[in-house]
Design a protein around this nucleic acid. Sequence first.
DNA 1: TGACCGATGAAT
DNA 2: TTCATCGGTCAT
Length: 205
Amino acid sequence: MRKIPLRRKLPLSFYVRPTEEVAKGLLGKVLVHRMGRELLSGRIVETEAYLGAKDPACHSYPNRRTARTSILFGPGGYSYVYFIYGVYYCFNVVTEQEGVGEAVLVRALEPLEGIEKMKKLRSTSRLESLCSGPGKLCQALGIGRKENGLPLNGDRLWIEDGPAPERVITCTRIGIAQPEARDLPLRFYDADSPHVSKRSPTHRK
DNA sequence: TGACCGATGAAT
DNA sequence: TTCATCGGTCAT
């Protein structure tokens, strides 16, 4: 009997839910990017929720619609990829129903498929530093500008089902300075994964 | 058209 | 903890 990998893509309805639920729910799921014939994938071990209308750290705060943020206001289940610091890309998943501008930032993966390709794209061979940060995982999976706005049930970029981690840590988000936002417990990660980003949460000065 | 900035990463 | 870095964004 041949081994055929089971590829169970999450339905778009998975994402049309409260953003914090989706952020927690994505832990253990598998992000897959197809580059030509090759599949690059990793298990999601760290996420952050961005709550548009009430979250100053969110690009769409306070319900600000611009060319860039318009994708956030669409229905859940689409990718939102943005460029930051003139250097890196960050991959987000749009959540909630149309009209709600919220998303989940995927911050770290445990590399699964296409690891050799990832090493080339990242110019490093250490497994734990391949996808342990939002900029890193985009570089490792080859995710960039062209992957913005893609439906996550398509054939280029999708997320597959997988078992939830045993222990989930909830804490404050990384790199958020706004007083109204920095203390919100909107970061979630697998307590037992060595692949989460290494930086510790920023707290008050 | 241009001033400003940033949900980072890597080195220290 | 610091700091290099640069294209995109958005208000003008």
